[in-house]
Amino acid sequence: MFWKEQGMKLGVVLYLLVCFTGSLWLMGLIKSGMLVEIAGVRVADTETYLYCGLAGAVGGCLYAMRLFHDFYDKLMGRWVLWYLMRPIKCAGAAVMTVVLFESGIMLLQPTNSLEAKIGIAFLVGFGYGKVMDKLKALTETLFNGKNEPSPPGGGDETPRAK
């Protein structure tokens, strides 16, 4: 059991390090112009969103590595999936949050500079949990008209007589 637990911990830390350094490395490749196409899509057409996704992944990896360090002795198998999914979820959330800011749906208006968008994307990745709480509150406000949890079933049903 000891070796299985140690192997799991080693796998998590290696995965996070590969995601962290790989994201930074890919950002460098994009900036240098050496990466022209990914899976048939021209990088130039999606460059801003690639940068934002990679910056979100870097933020998510940093947060996960900090927690891994803090809770190293308490890591259980059920948390491994959290560590594996963190960079991916943070990358997606970072891209979509920047889109929401650019569209004006969310009120923060970043400057039009790429660095500002990358900075926001990093912060979204690092503070993913808090960002999701804000997005949930925004969604409730936009679509329910109030910032309260909706009743089971989404609140679309009429109350039934007992």
Results as ranks from 00 to 15, higher is better:
Asn112Trp: 02
Glu140Met: 13
Gly60Met: 01
Pro152Gly: 06
Pro159Phe: 12
Gly40Glu: 08
Val41Tyr: 09
Ile38Phe: 13
Ala94Pro: 11
Leu107Ser: 15
Arg86His: 04
Asp73Ala: 14
Leu75Asp: 04
Ala91Ile: 09
Gln109Pro: 12
Val18Lys: 03
Ala137Arg: 08
Thr97Pro: 07
Ala44Thr: 12
Tyr51Ile: 03
Gly154Tyr: 08
Met34Asp: 13
Glu37His: 06
Asn112Lys: 15
Cys61Ala: 07
Gly33Tyr: 00
Val43Ser: 03
Ser32Gly: 11
Thr111Asp: 15
Gln109Arg: 15
Ile88Arg: 03
Val12Leu: 06
Thr139Cys: 07
Leu100Ile: 07
Thr141Ser: 14
Gly92His: 00
Phe122Ile: 10
Phe143Asn: 12
Val36Thr: 15
Ser113Cys: 09
Pro152Leu: 09
Pro151Ala: 12
Cys52Leu: 00
Gly125Ser: 11
Pro159Glu: 04
Leu107Asp: 14
Val36Asn: 07
Asn147Asp: 13
Ala121Lys: 02
Cys61Asp: 02
Met132His: 08
Lys134Met: 15
Leu135Ala: 10
Asp73Gln: 13
Leu81Ser: 12
Gly53Gln: 01
Glu115Lys: 14
Pro110Asp: 09
Tyr72Pro: 10
Gly40Lys: 03
Phe143Gln: 10
Asn147Ala: 12
Leu67Trp: 05
Gly28Lys: 01
Ile88His: 01
Glu148Val: 10
Arg42Val: 09
Leu54His: 01
Leu14Val: 01
Cys52Arg: 01
Gly28Cys: 10
Thr48Gly: 01
Asn112Thr: 10
Arg86Cys: 06
Cys52Val: 12
Ala57Met: 08
Asp70Leu: 05
Pro159Asn: 04
Ala57Thr: 09
Ala64Tyr: 02
Phe122Glu: 02
Leu135Pro: 02
Gly77Gln: 07
Gly77His: 07
Gly77Pro: 07
Glu37Ser: 11
Gly53Tyr: 00
Gly28Ser: 09
Gly33Gln: 05
Thr111Ala: 10
Leu142Pro: 01
Glu148Ser: 07
Gly155Gln: 05
His69Cys: 13
Leu16Cys: 05
Ala91Tyr: 03
Glu157Gln: 10
Asn147Met: 09
Lys162Met: 12
Asn112His: 14
Arg78Lys: 11
Lys130Ala: 12
Lys9Tyr: 13
Thr97Trp: 00
Gly92Pro: 02
Val41Ser: 04
Gly145Phe: 05
Leu54Thr: 00
Met65Lys: 01
Tyr83Trp: 03
Ser113Tyr: 13
Phe71Ala: 06
Tyr63Asn: 06
Val18Tyr: 07
Gln6Val: 13
Gly11Gln: 10
Pro87Trp: 07
Val98Glu: 02
Asp73Val: 02
Glu115Trp: 15
Leu123Ala: 15
Ser150Val: 00
Leu84Cys: 09
Gly11Glu: 13
Thr141Glu: 10
Phe122Tyr: 07
Gly145Tyr: 05
Met132Leu: 14
Leu75Arg: 03
Gly33Pro: 04
Thr48Pro: 01
Lys117Trp: 11
Ala64Ser: 15
Tyr15Ser: 11
Gly77Val: 04
Pro87Thr: 06
Ile120His: 08
Gln6Phe: 11
Phe101Thr: 00
Leu135Ile: 11
Met8Ala: 14
Gly53Lys: 06
Leu17Glu: 04
Gly92Asp: 01
Leu75Phe: 12
Asp156Arg: 06
Lys130Met: 13
Ser23Asp: 04
Leu100Ser: 09
Lys130Trp: 14
Tyr72Cys: 04
